[in-house]
Design a protein around this nucleic acid. Sequence first.
DNA 1: TTGTAGGCGTTATCAC
DNA 2: GTGATAACGCCTACAA
Lengths: 356, 356
Amino acid sequence: MHSVWADNADDQEREPRAGQAPRGDGIRRRATIHDVAQLAGVSRQTVSRAVNDKGEIDPATKERVLEVARLLDYRPSRFARGLVRKGAVTAGLVLPDLMNPFFPEVAAGVLEAAEERGWQVVVWDSRTDENRELQALDKFSHQADAVVGYFKNPDDVLAQHLGGVPTVVLERGPHQTRFGAVGIDAAAGVAQGIAHLVRAGHRRIGMLDGDRIDAPGPRREAFLAAVRQHGLPVDSSWVAPSPEHSVAGGEAAMAQLLDARPELTAVFGFNDLIAVGAMRTARRRGLRVPDDLAVLGFDGLALGELVEPALTTLHIDKRRLGRLAVEQVARLSTGQEPLTGAEAWVIPQLVVRASA
Amino acid sequence: MHSVWADNADDQEREPRAGQAPRGDGIRRRATIHDVAQLAGVSRQTVSRAVNDKGEIDPATKERVLEVARLLDYRPSRFARGLVRKGAVTAGLVLPDLMNPFFPEVAAGVLEAAEERGWQVVVWDSRTDENRELQALDKFSHQADAVVGYFKNPDDVLAQHLGGVPTVVLERGPHQTRFGAVGIDAAAGVAQGIAHLVRAGHRRIGMLDGDRIDAPGPRREAFLAAVRQHGLPVDSSWVAPSPEHSVAGGEAAMAQLLDARPELTAVFGFNDLIAVGAMRTARRRGLRVPDDLAVLGFDGLALGELVEPALTTLHIDKRRLGRLAVEQVARLSTGQEPLTGAEAWVIPQLVVRASA
DNA sequence: TTGTAGGCGTTATCAC
DNA sequence: GTGATAACGCCTACAA
């Protein structure tokens, strides 16, 4: 059984060879307040005063002490300090893909909110890999006071590696997880999007889904619900998987979907990157966008305004998503109940541009 | 005078009200190993053994202790642990703009390299603000063992807030800084780019520069040197400033440059975002790219392949940049001299696409 | 102005 | 197997 507290790390690598001089290459033990005190011929307390700009100290001794400190390249140990002055909070942030512009923007929101609270944020890129997610948690369960992030692993696995650290998972409904959650109201968003396409006369609408074909996520479910509600001649055979959440992934998925459903007149992309990929494949095949094929994205990346034609998309306030996550986890870490109302839920907004 | 060691922070906010019960809302003192020991009726040492999966312990007591630990929501203090087990390294990463895809990719490189070393990385977005840079350093000088980042502040100001933490600055030549440095060989890159434009017949080439007009950086200097070398009828009046390093900034700057130098047949953008902005303004004014106006970028963002026409650019291995920075700062923190050769220098590669 | 004593929470060491 | 004892490096309180 895996103990959630155990530090199964391969830390400790600093050899204790104590070079007395601060210079010299090779690993040397860092100078402590004691070393400084000794060399300066004062008590540790005096060093502390000098180093911390406390008042009660003779300017002369202060200067002397500071001089020695500099000489020894002394820096207070953050561990010792943290032990005695409370209040330094570290949050861990797990992101699946730094190369998708969506996540840096979420991160920006997280950083903002964390900064306001005086927290620092440690970032980990899981590369959408379950094992790497757990590695992150193994670290964070020891090194962080709170965790926020995107996870593929199921709750129980996460919990096992979390060791009780307050956690908020992103884009998993509050009812779908036992952790704090901040989600996107995919249903509301997708409904808007499909309604827009239908309004424009489309009936044969496909989807490029980022979720595994055997594990439909909220976006696909919302899509299927929407097309059904509008009575469209569309079923799950109109959904092609795009395991790679990237432009290239979208290109490939679109090719596949077009082969399966040539009668398509519109596609909904799991995210903007995939949607852009879809546009590219469509155009490469000689289809005009939006005339022959309308394309709808999901995310609202800045990128969408730069491609041609500009991408119609369901815009998400990514920064807010990040901020909310921090607020949630802050609640958790003070023992409050997580929010589950509108404060934990961001609703996509349809942004109509040229592609649909 | 600002003491580099002083913790001029407004930390400490945790009120010491010790709720004995683990549950209950409101701030409660976190349970310590002592609390667990007491409630479980064993010594702290035994708790430590249980929690750390050490061998020498009776399975029964272990289970009991773990149970209590769970009950009390006990998590070992990372500070106390860090004090006694050495080896947990934290690096601070200062980025100027998370919204520019360039930097997340640099960050990805930093994270990779840091992970390989078992380091964790705390990220700070300075938003290209000198004051925020210093805020970051004030934090990192206490909380980090190494710092890597982009800075506008001059060396001496940085040093003042760094308190001796090993530091590597990005994109500042080794001879331009007293810190460790990892740079881009702008001269080599720009030379390739301008040569390409000249080869295509361009002689009236402008530049959209991201640096302040009164503080030319390496890219502008390289540009000016290159056009001079090719004997082009171009001087610094062909350089328009684009203080915003964004698409919008590039659009505005391009408008300005086009007004000043309508005879332009090609532009070099400080970065890809600016270059894309330039393309947009050009096309909005009815100019065809590249026929009427060729556009050359600098960065090699993925984005450049998606715009129309695709952007010709000087591609930088951003991930490598990040990795090198970590390697450099790792050297510094073990007392070695920083690298200054090719290992600390990334050379842009011309990628020819449709825009030039 | 300066020094001494004690404790922050954890683990290593060495007894029992 | 389990428990004292002594660090780890720093800071707060109090004494000199």
